[in-house]
């Protein structure tokens, strides 16, 4: 037991490296927040475009979504990180991480939004169009508001899963929690930073789940 505490809960190590872990938390939150905003918005835009039913455009969207759902994010990250500089595009690790995770989240959320749009009964389209609203007005004011509210549970689950992938940033040197923890571990020769890092993730996770649950209850109204 003593050995456990010394190895994983060493007070001296905690004191020395806690600032680094905290800094890693800031970076993690920055990446995660940016990914959520661009990923969810991107998915919404793609799903809205898909509702216009322009065949060649839809084929491209489906292709994009399939590829980014089938590939492990780490694979895409490594391709971007090692390949882009060699073709003249110089991006920081942070940017690569944000870009790849956004594209992955956009792909998943497009599917979720599209299912939501499909599940809106045809009658809603007909009622709105028959009062003279255009396609775009119907989409914006009647269809999407309903579709979006229905998608909150699967969307929050998927968003949480993707933001945990921020840990992959450690592989390409982004100074988020895991990387700080690993660095601290090798400098201190002690595993405490790893445990603290794990606790940091849990700390971040709790408010996200709470927000998700709040969103679900806020948008609970009777279905059409």
């Amino acid at each position: 037991m003593d050995r456990f505490v010394d190895a994983f809960l060493n007070p001296a190590v905690i004191e020395k490296y806690l600032p680094d872990i905290l800094w890693g938390m800031v970076v993690t939150v920055e990446v995660a927040a940016a990914v959520v905003v661009t990923g969810v918005l991107g998915g919404l835009v793609l799903a809205a475009i898909r509702s216009f039913r322009v065949r060649p455009l839809n084929a491209l969207i489906v292709l994009f979504v399939d590829v980014f759902r089938a590939l492990p994010p780490l694979v895409i990250i490594l391709i971007a990180y090692f390949g882009l500089p060699n073709v003249g595009i110089s991006l920081s690790g942070f940017t690569v991480l944000w870009l790849v995770l956004s594209l992955v989240l956009a792909a998943f959320s497009e599917e979720i939004f599209w299912s939501g749009i499909l599940s809106i009964r045809k009658g809603q389209w007909e009622a709105a169009r028959s009062t003279g609203l255009s396609f775009v007005q119907t989409l914006a004011w009647v269809i999407l508001p309903q579709a979006v509210r229905m998608t909150v549970p699967p969307l929050t689950n998927r968003t949480i899963a993707i933001t945990k992938n921020t840990a992959l940033g450690a592989v390409i040197g982004v100074p988020e929690i895991l990387m700080q923890a690993q660095t601290a571990q090798s400098f201190s020769g002690n595993a405490t930073p790893l445990l603290i890092g794990s606790l940091a993730y849990i700390l971040l996770f709790i408010p996200v789940v709470a927000v998700g649950r709040w969103l679900e209850t806020r948008f609970a109204w009777g279905r059409a």
């Binding site: 050995r3 994983f8 840990a167 895991l178 923890a181 571990q185 595993a191 709790i206």
Partner: peptide, 23 residues
């Protein structure tokens, strides 16, 4: 909830690189 909160990579590194510290 604990194991869903922690990213799998962190868990993996913890087990592989952390456990050796307790033998």
């Amino acid at each position: 909830d604990f194991f869903r909160a922690v990213p799998p990579l962190v868990l993996l590194i913890f087990i592989y690189a952390g456990l050796p510290f307790v033998g």
